[in-house]
């Protein structure tokens, strides 16, 4: 169940992630996300920069744009997703 929703959350954020052109696929940034009970994204904090400001900002924007995130309807199961540590690496990027 947790794995299923992990997948749904990643899919939702990935759909909104517009990766700037010319960014190296070896870069990565890490975000700390707090999620409200309805799946709404309350805060997004950059805890590790990729070194590329545009990539960091595209990652943060993707998370906010994906709000509300898909959560299990069961309250206890949803509580697991209250705080997320998300690493974003532009390794498999679709060319638009």
């Amino acid at each position: 169940m947790v794995d299923q929703y992990k997948g749904l959350i990643l899919e939702a954020i990935g759909q909104h992630w517009l990766v700037p052109t010319g960014v190296s696929p070896s870069l990565a940034c890490q975000l700390m996300i707090t999620v409200g009970e309805q799946g709404n994204v309350d805060t997004v904090q950059l805890i590790k920069s990729s070194g590329n400001v545009l990539l960091d900002q595209s990652a943060i924007a993707a998370v906010y744009k994906a709000s509300p995130l898909p959560l299990p309807s069961d309250k206890d199961a949803a509580a697991v997703f209250k705080q997320l540590r998300l690493t974003l690496k532009p390794e498999q990027i679709l060319e638009s």
Binding site: I9, L10, W17, L18, T21, S58, A62, F81, T87, P90
Partner: peptide
Amino acid sequence: AMLSLELTQGTRS
């Protein structure tokens, strides 16, 4: 308690 996730898929823009 914190769940760790990794995203590698996006769209070039």
